[in-house]
C-alpha cells in the first residue's frame, strides 16, 4: 500500500504552520500522520451513495448573538501574556512583505 504522506509533505505542512521540526520529528510525524490517514481511509469502504455531504457534525444551525457590545479585556490585560509588548502594542519580528493578507 502507498504511503499516505511522505516526509516532504510533512515538511511543507510544518513550514505552512510555522513549525520547526527536527529530522527525528519529521520521521516520527510522518509515521503518525500516515497511520491516522490510513485509519480514516477505512471510511472509504462505506457506501455513501445518496448521502448528503455534512457541513457540520452537529445537527444545529443558526446560533446567533445579538449585536450588543460587551466589555473587552482592556490593553493591559490583553498584552499581559505577550512575549514582547510595549504597553500599547504587541511587538513582533519585523514584517517585511505587504504585511497583511486579509
Amino acid at each position: 500500500m502507498d504511503k499516505k504522506i511522505d516526509q516532504e509533505q510533512v515538511r511543507k505542512v510544518a513550514r505552512l504552520s510555522r513549525l520547526e521540526l527536527t529530522e527525528a520529528e519529521v520521521e516520527e510525524f510522518t509515521g503518525q500522520l500516515g497511520a491516522i490517514l490510513e485509519y480514516v481511509e477505512k471510511m472509504n469502504e462505506l457506501n455513501t451513495d445518496g448521502v448528503e455531504p455534512l457541513a457540520h457534525c452537529l445537527a444545529v444551525s443558526n446560533v446567533f448573538r445579538e449585536d450588543i457590545v460587551e466589555e473587552s479585556l482592556g490593553t493591559e490585560r490583553a498584552l499581559a501574556n505577550a512575549p514582547q509588548q510595549d504597553g500599547e502594542f504587541f511587538r513582533v519580528p519585523k514584517i517585511l512583505d505587504g504585511g497583511s493578507g486579509a
Binding site: Q84, E88, F89
Partner: peptide, 12 residues
C-alpha cells in the same frame, strides 16, 4: 500592523 522604525513591527 504598524511598521515602526526599530527592528520590529507593532500589532494592534
Amino acid at each position: 500592523n504598524v511598521h515602526s522604525t526599530g527592528g520590529f513591527s507593532q500589532v494592534d
